[in-house]
Write a protein that binds this DNA or RNA. Structure first.
Lengths: 231, 231
DNA sequence: CATGTATGAATGAACG
DNA sequence: CGTTCATTCATACATG
């Protein structure tokens, strides 16, 4: 999945065709909206670049090894609360582990053998504390939840009909893009607005780290069905 | 090129709100495309924020007065008056809905059947956007919280929900990045929680450098799906 | 604007 | 396996 880079300029064109072809159920954006998006992204890219540059030259001057990293972060575990070694009560997969798990899940069609689980556990253990049970549960849960999502939300037929013609307030645009409805959204060459939902940095970092930009799809399992191309 | 391309599953609307769309100059995007875009941007924002924060704390320690501000990275952005794209990331019951929910909760002793939930959802939908999942979650949460309140009331056993005090967040909006100020995105050095790998500037820079922002959906489970249109 | 609190949602684990 | 519980995270909202 390729994405915007510094020169976002042209990329958008494709989208038009792409989307248009799909036709039937789709959101529509005006050229202005697209333009807004394009600029927004371009600006972000630019800022990122600048920041990085700045940081580079800056930190280069003060190569204070050691303190440079990990510093800004709070150790989530021994937070100032001081009391117990706030060791988690329940296992939480690290991004790396998750990545692996998801990959395997896909490979095994969600049902790895017992041996497989054991092997995995060993491997996963290299990336953080984990037990066989954890792995087992994880698979179990994932299967169950995926399933539920599929059956429970056969967003099907009868329903959609009904609301389709109501289509006024409820079941309108998903929150995810409500921003586009905002009439105040305006774009001036220097003034671009766009909502920035709070996506956990850890997720992002995690994915980036492991997949290294290329991203082997952990993908939105819930609701996505197009990810059968990974191995 | 593989741009956001996917299966569509929603109708589009919002046309009437944007007069421009009415006719000819409209581009079409699927929901997934939109979602991907949104996330892409979110990631940019997040990374920028992160970078700024890091830079800030980094430079702060050396009192390199002057160069910290006046920066290149503030520039043109929304100087301040940023409106907020009405962003609702999570469902919030309307008073009416709440009333109904509570009534039913009492009736069902907290545990309505699946069918019941479905019916309710339909009814509740008349009073505002809602989905079956919302209702389901609502009951879950209510049961859990009521239970807890009854058993171990105060701070002691309920530390889980009470221990949030551990993290003090000071977030002094860096003048340099006011542009990123967003009510929903408040990532600071103190509230970032890295599950395991402590990733520093290097990683981010590295990725950015190389890929110039190639990104794939990091799959923020929260707020991702679950917005089925059953409701 | 900063901080605290209520609560929707995600998810590991447990249950039947 | 499907369902439910328990814990935790993150955000909406109220407050000083």
């Amino acid at each position: 999945m390729e994405w915007i880079n510094s020169s976002v300029q042209e990329k958008q064109q494709q989208q038009e065709e792409n989307g248009a072809v799909e036709g039937l159920y789709a959101k529509v954006m005006t050229d202005e909206q697209m333009e807004l998006l394009r600029k927004q992204i371009a600006v972000y890219a630019m800022i990122c670049e600048q920041l990085v540059d700045m940081h580079k030259s800056f930190s280069a001057q003060y190569d204070i090894a050691g303190m440079r990293l990990g510093n800004p972060y709070l150790d989530p575990f021994m937070s100032s609360g001081g009391q117990k070694f706030t060791t988690r009560q329940r296992w939480t997969p690290t991004p790396v582990q998750l990545q692996i798990l998801e990959r395997v899940y896909d490979e095994c069609s969600g049902n790895p053998g017992k041996q497989k689980i054991l092997d995995m556990t060993t491997e996963l253990a290299h990336h953080g504390q984990i037990s066989e049970t954890n792995v087992y549960n994880w698979f179990q849960n994932r299967r169950a939840r995926i399933k539920r999502k599929q059956s429970g939300v056969p967003s099907n037929t009868t329903e959609s009909e009904a609301k389709k013609h109501v289509m006024s307030k409820k079941y309108t645009t998903p929150e995810s893009i409500q921003s586009f409805e905002n009439p105040t959204a305006r774009i001036t060459e220097n003034n671009i607005y766009f909502q920035s939902p709070n996506i956990g940095m850890e997720q992002i970092i995690g994915k980036m780290d492991v997949a290294g930009m290329v991203y082997s799809p952990p993908l939105p399992h819930w609701q996505m069905d197009r990810y059968d191309m990974l191995g």
